[in-house]
Design a binder for these strands. Structure first.
Length: 566
RNA sequence: GCGUCCGUGGCUCAGCUGGAUAGAGCAUCUGAUUGCGGUUCAGAAGGUCGCAGGUUCGAAUCCUGCCGGACGUACCA
């Protein structure tokens, strides 16, 4: 149930009833408590359009509002703002209806769409580093979210497993022979060592180049070595995914190389459609409004990632039936995707009813606003970053209570990983973000720990109470109760907006509001104290239960776990 | 040079499909609470929303110019 949608329906009906041609009706959350819960600001522009007094328009609309149980009071203020006050009784009944529903009242799409979310996409030649963190976290959250709302989500891990560097790597792998297993433990070192050999030894370099040709020619032995290498490298990624509690599996891998056979066909097809031109020896497509063309085939005959991306779009639309394809890739590639999408449209690979979107995100910076690097200036390995998160979380929580070593480890991991993910998801993905351990592991402010703490605190109420909440009439007499109840009902509209805009931070903002409102409610409205009347206690237990359930559900969608005790 | 994005209290961020006195958190200061987990709650202080114009009844939000920053600018991915 989306309150906003319900209210918009009412206003639209009122406009129809009073013969006002209103066009699109938009209701917004009120900017201040004194202005009610929601507000309709459309009377002013409407007045201008109709050449009438805005207050009169507002009055006509308000008087024509159909009978309903949602609104308790409507008032017109200022030049023509329509302030909507919701009925506490209505809110209470909605909370009762949602609180014990596994989906908390959130509906699912009546006609599911097929959606492809392309994220993580590590390069197999190297170890995953912080550059892959945001894509992996944001992409996974988005995939979870769309799936929860009823889309058929297809996760695609478009791993980089093809290209000239693999000739070098498998040549080195072969050279090491049996002992190679150990060397692959650290891909970064392996890559460096191979590169060193390549640069220093001409014979090796020659062999590496030969291997590229053989590999592309389908040489069985080379393919075998290559496959072996990819398997190992993918194993590293999976270790990271598992640590990150990210749902990507081997099933989701659709490697770059899997499109190899399609590439000549793409070129031929673009040619046949008259889109391809030759420019400076390369085969390109010029996109109207773009200065430089999209290069489809290099002058030496090689293909580029644009070609692969086009093949991928074609595959995803025609074979997977995608109606929305979301690329969770950093902002630097905006230009690339703009062009690839344009060409995909021109070539008909993605008809107009398929939504192509670049879910772009900014860079990860250190505390001083510089690109995130190790102290020595190298790239930070993701696995090490995650280990540090757990280590720091352990340190942050040990001072509190005594845990068994196993429990401590489990808690530290959930808290540490949660902090890293939440910190990333809680800011507008478009901007660069500053990675600061101290802030993300703080218990105060908009952090995962604050949410996890709120959750654990509620769970502790039920432990103390001795049983779980049971359905009961909800009473919203006090302001903190009413505000909490209303916030609980806003879950669906927040999730929908976050899904529509691919903006996970809408959800974290909501959670922060919710947790804060709960703390205030808890402060003002005792639950278990002996002087609380039974029916109030039962009502408040329902509110507490619904809050915990909302926190857990939304955090789960974001890929963050909660704990019964902290 | 051209293009894209970004400039909001000391710091980190919301708000940007134009709406009422620009919101949080951290840090700072004050108070409540002998605590149903006070790591909470209440309050104070702190802002020419980069600058200058423009559009509008109304601009942080839209338009133009400028300043500052990041990124991108054809055969890497």
């Amino acid at each position: 149930m989306q309150i906003k949608t319900e209210l918009e329906r009412l206003i639209r009906q009122a406009c129809e009833n009073s013969g006002i041609d209103a066009g699109e009706i938009r209701v917004a959350e009120a900017t201040k408590a004194e202005f009610g819960d929601y507000q309709f600001n459309g009377a002013m522009p409407l007045a201008k359009k109709l050449g009438q007094n805005p207050r009169q328009i507002a009055t006509r609309i308000v008087e024509a509002l159909p009978e309903n149980e949602i609104l308790e009071r409507v008032e017109i203020a200022g030049p023509g703002f329509v302030n909507l006050h919701l009925s506490p009784g209505w809110i209470a009944r909605q909370v009762e209806a949602c609180a014990f529903d596994p989906r908390l009242g959130v509906g699912t799409r009546s006609e599911p769409r097929r959606v492809v979310v392309d994220y993580s996409s590590p390069n197999m030649a190297k170890e995953m580093h912080v550059g892959h963190l945001r894509s992996t976290i944001i992409g996974d959250a988005l995939a979870n979210l769309l799936g929860f709302l009823g889309d058929e989500v297809i996760r695609q891990n478009h791993i980089g497993d093809w290209g000239t560097q693999f000739g070098m790597l498998i040549a080195y792998l072969e050279e090491l022979g049996e002992g190679a297993e150990g060397s692959l433990q650290d891909l970064e070192e392996f890559y460096k060592a191979a590169k060193k050999r390549f640069d220093e030894d001409e014979a090796f370099a020659h062999k590496a180049r030969e291997y590229v040709v053989k590999l592309q020619g389908g040489d069985v032995r080379c393919l075998h070595l290559w496959q072996d290498f990819i398997d190992k490298s993918l194993g590293h990624c999976e270790e990271v995914y598992s640590k990150l509690h990210v749902r990507l599996t081997r099933e989701d891998v659709r490697a770059e190389s899997s499109y190899n056979d399609d590439l000549p066909a793409i070129v031929a097809d673009l040619e046949a459609k008259g889109l391809l031109q030759t420019s400076e020896g390369a085969k390109v497509v010029f996109v109207p409004g773009e200065e430089t063309p999209l290069i489809i085939q290099k002058s030496d005959g090689g293909y580029l990632y644009a070609t692969t991306d086009l093949a991928a779009i074609r595959f995803r639309v025609s074979q997977l039936g995608a109606k929305r394809i979301s690329y969770v890739v950093d902002a630097r590639q905006a230009g690339h995707f703009r062009q690839v999408f344009a060409v995909a449209r021109m070539a008909g690979y993605a008809p107009e009813d398929v939504r192509l979107e670049h879910v772009s995100f900014g860079m990860m910076l250190d505390k001083n606003g510089r690109p995130f690097k190790t102290r020595e200036g190298g790239t930070v390995k993701l696995i090490e970053l995650l280990e540090e998160a757990t280590r720091r979380a352990r340190k942050a929580i040990t001072q509190k209570e005594a845990y068994g070593p196993e429990e401590l480890e489990k808690i530290a991991e959930i808290v540490g990983i949660g902090a890293v993910k939440y910190a990333d998801l809680s800011i507008n993905r478009e901007s660069n973000y500053i990675f600061d351990w101290d802030r993300m592991l703080s218990l105060e402010g908009n952090t995962s720990l604050y949410q996890q703490y709120a959750y654990a605190r509620i769970r502790s109420i039920f432990r103390k109470h001795g049983s779980e909440a049971e359905p009961a009439p909800v009473i919203l007499e006090e302001e903190p109760e009413r505000r909490l109840g209303l916030k609980l009902l806003q879950l669906e509209e927040v999730l929908q907006a976050a899904a529509q805009d691919a903006m996970p931070h809408y959800i974290t903002s909501y959670l922060y509001d919710l947790a804060t409102l709960f703390m205030k409610f808890y402060e003002r409205c005792p639950i278990l104290r002996s002087d609380v009347p039974e029916e109030r206690r039962r009502s408040r237990l329902v509110l507490a239960h619904a809050t915990a359930a909302t926190l857990r559900l939304a955090l789960e969608i974001l890929g963050i776990k909660v704990l019964e005790r902290l």
